[in-house]
Design a protein around this nucleic acid. Structure first.
Lengths: 341, 341
DNA sequence: CTGAAAGCGCTTACAG
DNA sequence: CTGAAAGCGCTTACAG
């Protein structure tokens, strides 16, 4: 029913091969046949069957993106919409389609990736998270399948990745608090199996060590990238006999949880507790007080990752490449208070 | 190189047809061959080539979603992440993949859809926006291609759609402000070519009319779904000689723009101006003051739309269906102030 | 510059 | 219950 290359060929009085060559812009086709065929394609409303084309060309012009497991949870954070926005924009510009999958647990997630890869459904994969010992990374690497990791891998040095220098970003945030005169600085972290949690924790520790400040074990709390985690961390901290006067918080959304808790209990930010978050989401400047945050250019992260992947797919990249997207600390009221104690 | 159905057939000592039937769970296959073939598939790491399968079955097990044109802008709003979250969840559960496209302008958008549809790349399409006279809707309808609209169409009554009762939602919000004693109530709208803008404006007008209140033309301002729009609306209103004491605002993000502007100018909410938004995004309860908002269950909108589409694809739905997702007004401080003037 | 032919990896009537 | 054969809509060496 749909018009095929054969229908066009018949009407144009040429062979299907010729039509195919016109479509793909083959050089050795006479201008006259080319334009005639094009005209007829237009006239008949011809559109290539993508599946047939993919089947023989073994190429799909599609990039797959794997949503981190609890897609439900993770979308509450602005990180994912933002990276995806960057990815969509760049891949659209490159004329690539985007395929999204996810699994409800680690096994299903790997299954989904396997399906995409082995089923030849996509030309490359974008991984939006870097876990330690990630079986997906291992699989993709074993298959020698094009992929780019947003984040970095501890386990393999030879993969393509786009990341911030999270260690430095966290170091900068901590240094800022130290410069404000804080001596007792806590850290609210994310899931410990994520590289980003690790890196930011390291940067925090480094800054403290360098300044000769103590890092109390109880001043470090792990959680999820959710408001509730911040809320819980806050109650924990505020019940400590010797509590921190400032916190570096792994994510703005978590910082908002802290902020909300503090407000409910009648504490004031930055007086009772100073805060610095990460991501610099839109809301950071709207909250009361406005939240200091490290802008990590999430959109750029996604845009660059997509770009890198597509270049890799096209064979324009051979060597291992780790791109680093610069960050920028945005200081706002939540951490603006010179301490003199 | 990849293992095919033929490789499996050889090793199992059966024909490719048999392997194919085992895969698709054909009833008339003996349990013994079935299990033998399955074993060998497992052993050889067989994975069906999706393209080949699609080519012959004319089915892709994929749903396409079209991102509204300025993907860049629209993602700043939590609406899209949220619908997509609902869609991803439901389509994953139904074992459908998700394909995302977009165009940078209306023409390209239609082209992208055409490519998906005519290229047989997806089995159905999810439209996340309802514009008036939308050429995409027209195209899809002409093609008799399965699609579901999140929103509603003015132009066609016979399409599948999932929407809130936006007119009623807005009516409720306005009624609430009236009940608080407001007599001068303004409305900050979205782009006028969106049905949702229209519907909410209608609901607002209806509530005012019913209460015998005047609706000053200058109290209605149109804009985008962006903070800046709210900011601009705010400066406009506050310079009015006889300005409104309360606003119904089309979207929380816009309401935050209003709020920010007011705070900068030293005005207080709800005393100087009361506010009610739509969407009830996470941040609504975190702002100062917390924002009253109509919760429209965005996630549910996406989940239901995906469900409806997949049922339509499978032929389980014949008749025209318009599902309505209930809304709920969440009253918070930004509109809690009984006026007595 | 163009055509005939083989083939991509699968499914599905048609026979038996 | 299973196989042989045709075909889905395209591309691409191989000839000419």
């Amino acid at each position: 029913m749909a018009v095929t290359i054969i229908d066009v060929a018949k009407r144009a009085g040429v062979s299907p091969s010729t039509v195919s060559r016109v479509i793909s812009g083959h050089p050795r086709i006479s201008p006259s046949t080319s334009s005639k065929v094009k005209e007829i394609m237009e006239e008949m409303g011809y559109h290539p069957n993508v599946m047939a084309k993919s089947l023989v060309s073994k190429t799909t012009n599609t990039v797959g993106i794997v949503l981190p497991r609890p897609a439900e949870e993770l979308f509450q954070n602005m990180f994912f919409p933002e990276v995806i926005r960057g990815i969509v924009t760049q891949s659209t510009r490159s004329k690539y389609d985007l395929m999204i999958t996810t699994g409800i647990n680690e096994r299903e997630e790997l299954e989904a990736v396997t399906r995409l890869v082995k089923g030849r459904r996509v030309d490359g994969i974008l991984l939006l998270h870097s876990r330690r010992q990630d079986p997906i990374i291992q699989f993709l690497r074993d298959q020698n399948f094009p992929f780019v990791l947003v984040g970095r891998s501890e386990d393999y040095a030879d993969i393509l990745s786009v990341d911030n220098n999270n260690r430095l970003a966290s170091y900068d945030a901590t240094r800022h608090l130290i410069a404000q005169g804080h001596k007792r600085i806590g850290f609210v972290s994310g899931p410990p199996n994520l590289i980003v949690s690790q890196d930011r924790l390291d940067g925090y520790r480094e800054a403290l060590a360098e300044a000769g400040l103590e890092s109390h074990p109880s001043w470090i709390v792990e959680g999820e990238f959710l408001q509730e985690s911040g809320y819980r961390a806050m109650s924990f901290f505020m019940n400590l006999p010797e509590r921190p006067t400032a916190l570096v918080v792994i994510d703005d959304i978590v910082a908002f949880g802290v902020l909300r808790g503090l407000t409910e209990l009648g504490y004031k930010v930055p007086v009772d507790l100073s805060l610095v978050g990460f991501n610099n989401i839109q809301m950071a400047e709207l909250s009361t007080p406005p939240l200091s945050s490290v802008d990590i250019s999430i959109y750029q992260l996604g845009y660059t990752a997509s770009q890198l992947l597509i270049r890799r797919i096209k064979g324009e990249i051979e060597t291992q490449t780790n791109m680093v997207i610069p960050h920028r600390l945005i200081v706002r009221e939540s951490s603006l208070l010179q301490r003199r104690d």
